[in-house]
Design a protein around this nucleic acid. Structure first.
Lengths: 180, 180
DNA sequence: CGGAATCCGCCACGATACTG
DNA sequence: CAGTATCGTGGCGGATTCCG
């Protein structure tokens, strides 16, 4: 049992939830527990699993087939994490072909609403984001191009000066300049 | 310009947002754009930056100091990603000590509510999760222990059998079986 | 079928140093 | 001050194999 990943034995509270927290101090308490939990539930696969488990309980292979990009290792890991966090429950039927069902716990069900909100936001704004990205990329590309041109120009000038400085006549080698 | 990370030039749509999407098919369209955006905004630092930028605009160093765990590299990267996605805007004041302000765009402001919801959920349920984890860990520890004991027992039996077999005729080793 | 264990590539992230 | 460039490393995640 290598334990491989960062499952800490001791939760180690760092700040209680007394309800007196301030939005402006939210950042300070960030790297305690909230951050960790957030990273866990918002990771690559957890969102998917929770979303799929919302309506009905599913078996391991069913989940595997529905998610499609996931490896059995990652699915097992994700499910164990979610089970550990009390978000999904695991029930084993000791039949001849072993069968294991996963379903959302009440706690997991409450999370689902929040997750849906996030996903919905993403869906609703993905075109805006795509547009913003395209604009940004275009702007960067232009800047890059002009920077390249200017750099080439400077280089050509430097070459010219050097050539003129180097002994003898040396006619303008500016012909070697490569406009792009 | 190494481009280092996965900033793809071409967005590459894979499913339009025609409003006719079904919750049950949400999983299938997962690995297209939504997943990518989700990973971006829910990553380790973006949430923090957006949360901090909610009320007022901040300079680079101000953000750096407030987040505290972050390296200048990650902050720069995060800010550029958010800028690219059109969630924060960057304004440069060409003063003698250069000054750069970051603030949320309207789009970024809309995201803030959703993020707050997620964080709030986490804050409200972190004790439940901690409890579930403790219970899970305890259960696993117990199972682990019993498994170890049984393994040791089996090993002892195996040793007995081998010793009996090595020593000539070997009387029925079934006596060494430990009924449980 | 439902995993656990092992090996391994790769890249995300952090620390450091340099630029404008 | 506000970054970029370079390097080193831990761990995430995939492929494979074995077990109950």
């Amino acid at each position: 049992m290598t334990m491989e990943d960062g499952i800490s034995k001791s939760p180690g509270y760092c700040g209680d939830t007394d309800g007196d927290y301030d939005v402006l101090q939210w950042d300070t308490r960030e790297d305690c527990e909230v951050r960790q939990i957030l990273d866990r539930i918002a990771d690559k696969w957890s969102l998917l699993v929770i979303a799929l488990l919302d309506q009905r309980s599913l078996r391991f292979t069913e989940l595997r087939r529905r998610i499609d990009g996931i490896s059995q290792r990652m699915l097992a890991r994700t499910l164990r994490h979610l089970e550990r966090d009390g978000l999904v429950s695991r029930t084993v039927y000791p039949t001849v072909p072993p069968r294991v069902d996963y379903e959302l716990t009440p706690l997991g069900a409450t999370l689902h609403h929040t997750i849906r909100a996030l996903v919905t936001w993403t869906e609703e704004h993905q075109n805006q984001i795509a547009f913003a990205r395209a604009a940004y990329d275009a702007r960067v590309a232009v800047e890059q191009e002009t920077a390249d041109r200017e750099a080439a120009e400077r280089e050509a000038i430097a070459r010219d000066v050097l050539a003129a400085g180097a002994g003898r006549v040396a006619r303008m080698p500016s012909e070697s300049r490569r406009p792009r």
